[in-house]
């Protein structure tokens, strides 16, 4: 490289920047979070042994899987928004709450219809977000944040700040009561008595998400839109549709998560889902998705979700209180994001 510009009269201006990409960085980008997952598992095993019990005990694995199931469901959709370069969907908490409210409110129509209405409410929210951000190019953070506040206001005023219980909303007929009971049951069913339905649903959602992301034309278009919006636009991709679609997927996933959340809590209220916006973003970023968009994978996101769960698990093994965890989580988050950003820059983006 340097020979080419040797004839430059001013030697101080020699471009000494590295043009090769560090192999380690590439490796980190490829394997990404799974390295950390393995490291955390090893750490967990050591700490568990020191405590005299097994990290791989059925109950512990199950508890990790269950603790992350809801987050995983939301993350499987959130990745599209981050991937498309729109940073974060701040309306996730109220999407979850809204889906729970709608499901419980319509439980009288029967369980499948109620579920469909819940998911549909998520799709509607996604469409509105998609229209505002994809079509009108609103600032993604500010819009979704403001929309979150609006949804919160609507839910609070319409339902008067109350909590909804499925079995008291349900009419006094066998049909409605059965619907309410099956609603409660979805978060409490164990397939084969071991793995909870929630964990299965999460994995299924990740598989679907992976399929959409890597096997469909939408996934391919999304890659281009996330990498370079302008380039995608000039190559004839309907960017508006792609971005809208990414929000619809995200809100749908959040709605499914919200329904399970409401079933787990046995109540639907406006405060369901508080904190999920940031927690899920943490998982997605941990999974190696770049904030700028165009980089990342669904498999990595699953790794991010697991890493988050295992980290929490280990922190409580070590005996940290609920609040000290915040500081540790914050520092870990910053460190991961820094590595993420650093590798992004080394790869020539950003």
């Amino acid at each position: 490289m340097s020979e080419q510009i040797n004839n430059n009269p001013n030697p101080a201006k020699v471009d000494s920047r590295k043009t090769e990409i560090n192999r380690g960085i590439i490796l980190f980008n490829k394997l990404g979070i799974w390295v950390i997952v393995v490291a955390l598992v090893i750490l967990g095993v050591i700490i568990a042994m020191a405590n005299g019990s097994s990290f791989f005990g059925a109950s512990n694995v199950q508890s990790i899987l269950e603790a992350v199931a809801l987050q995983g469901m939301v993350c499987s959709g959130l990745i599209y928004v981050v991937y498309a370069g729109n940073m974060n969907d701040m309306s996730i908490p109220l999407t979850m709450a809204m889906a729970g409210m709608m499901t419980v409110q319509s439980i009288n129509l029967g369980f499948p219809i109620a579920l469909a209405i819940g998911v549909l409410s998520g799709v509607c929210i996604g469409l509105i977000n998609g229209f505002m951000i994809g079509k009108l190019k609103a600032n993604p953070i500010i819009w979704t944040w403001g929309f979150n506040l609006l949804l919160s206001g609507i839910i609070r005023v319409v339902w008067g700040g109350k909590q909804l219980y499925a079995d008291s909303v349900a009419a006094d007929t066998e049909y409605a009561q059965n619907a309410a009971n099956s609603f409660y049951a979805i978060s409490r069913t164990y397939i084969g008595g071991v793995i909870s339905l929630m964990a299965i649903v999460m994995l299924v959602m990740f598989v679907i998400s992976w399929f959409i992301h890597s096997k469909t034309s939408f996934g391919q278009k999304l890659k281009l839109v996330g990498t370079s919006y302008e380039a995608a636009r000039f190559s004839g991709i309907n960017c508006t549709r792609v971005v809208t679609m990414s929000y619809v997927l995200c809100s749908t996933a959040a709605a499914v998560g919200g329904i399970f959340y409401a079933a787990l809590r046995k109540t639907a209220s406006y405060e369901n889902g508080t904190g999920y916006d940031f927690a899920c973003l943490t998982c997605v970023l941990l999974g190696g998705t770049l904030l700028g968009g165009g980089q990342g994978s669904v498999v990595g996101t699953l790794g991010g979700v697991l890493a988050y769960g295992i980290l929490n698990n280990i922190l409580s093994w070590v005996g940290l209180g609920t609040y000290t965890k915040y500081a540790v989580q914050g520092v870990v988050f910053l460190a991961i994001v820094w590595i993420n950003t650093y590798s992004e820059r080394k790869l020539g983006k950003g």
Partner: peptide, 16 residues
């Protein structure tokens, strides 16, 4: 680091 994310992380740290 993007300011939104950096201050988000700091939020957790400050809380702790």
């Amino acid at each position: 680091i993007h300011s939104f994310i950096a201050t988000l992380g700091m939020q957790f740290v400050l809380r702790g």
